[in-house]
Design a protein around this nucleic acid. Structure first.
Lengths: 138, 138
DNA sequence: TCCTTACACTACAAATTGTAGTTGGGGGTA
DNA sequence: TACCCCCAACTACAATTTGTAGTGTAAGGA
């Protein structure tokens, strides 16, 4: 269930998935229960109904990619994400952070402080604490 | 000349470009002069010669994307990157760092220290300095 | 005038993603 | 029992991206 890309465009799940895939994952991750294709289909934009087969195809591709799992229950399949949304975000942020540092090293560090300051200055303190913590632990 | 994706796979320019594109950019960026298609073609793997038209198509697509510029000189076009490799890396690292922080916030911060420690511990000091610097400036 | 050279145009394949039609099996209902 | 409906599987097609390469064409030199 290795992601391929981190997209520059979009936000949230759209960074990792296609638009329809993202909507589907959003639904699966904000519903505590396993869901059938029909369940998901009905939760998608009521304005523009999406064909049942379309939803099925996309969901089964997500299964193929190891992102969803399906289980036969009585007459229909129940789908649910293999990992929780938190686990997913955790994995992605870890992966990307490492890749970023590996790829850009000091260049990334240079922008890091700037980015933190602009997006959420409190994170600067958090980062500072973590550095101190690490140094103490050694 | 907006990049689309940052790929999890590969390294260096392969994170941003297809394999042939990456090789071509590598050549263009490590040669101080403007080059013709033929120049580039001859610098690509001598083992497996790549068709002139193939190189031309890919290079012209890079022009369309705003990554290369071409200029008619006498009878043939000269190609060169629109920005230097350093500028490119600078832009990408900035963009990605911001996106990472925007998207993951404190989650990214948590992994940051870990990543720096594993990849290049000296960057930890650098980061610490930069935080101090910023705080002083305000 | 003819040929070489280099560019333009066109096309195709594989992969990804969105879209949807057709088929078929299995179970419930008349 | 006969039939129908639901849902899953299979198939297909379009657009996009990237790699690949053939054909057409124009311009300059021999």
């Amino acid at each position: 269930m290795k992601m391929q890309n981190f997209k520059y465009e979009g936000s949230g799940l759209n960074r990792f998935f296609g638009p329809l895939e993202a909507k589907i994952m959003e639904i699966l991750w904000t519903t505590p229960l396993e869901m059938t294709i029909k369940d998901v289909q009905q939760k998608l934009d009521k304005a523009k109904v999406i064909n049942f087969n379309t939803v099925m195809t996309v969901m089964n591709r997500l299964v193929d990619k190891g992102i969803l799992q399906k289980k036969l229950v009585v007459r229909s399949f129940m789908y649910k994400p293999v990992v929780t949304r938190d686990e997913f975000m955790e994995t992605q942020s870890k992966e990307l952070t490492f890749d970023l540092i590996e790829e850009f090293g000091s260049l990334a560090v240079t922008h890091m402080v700037d980015a933190l300051d602009k997006v959420d200055p409190e994170l600067l303190d958090k980062l500072e604490q973590q550095i101190k913590q690490l140094k103490k632990d050694r």
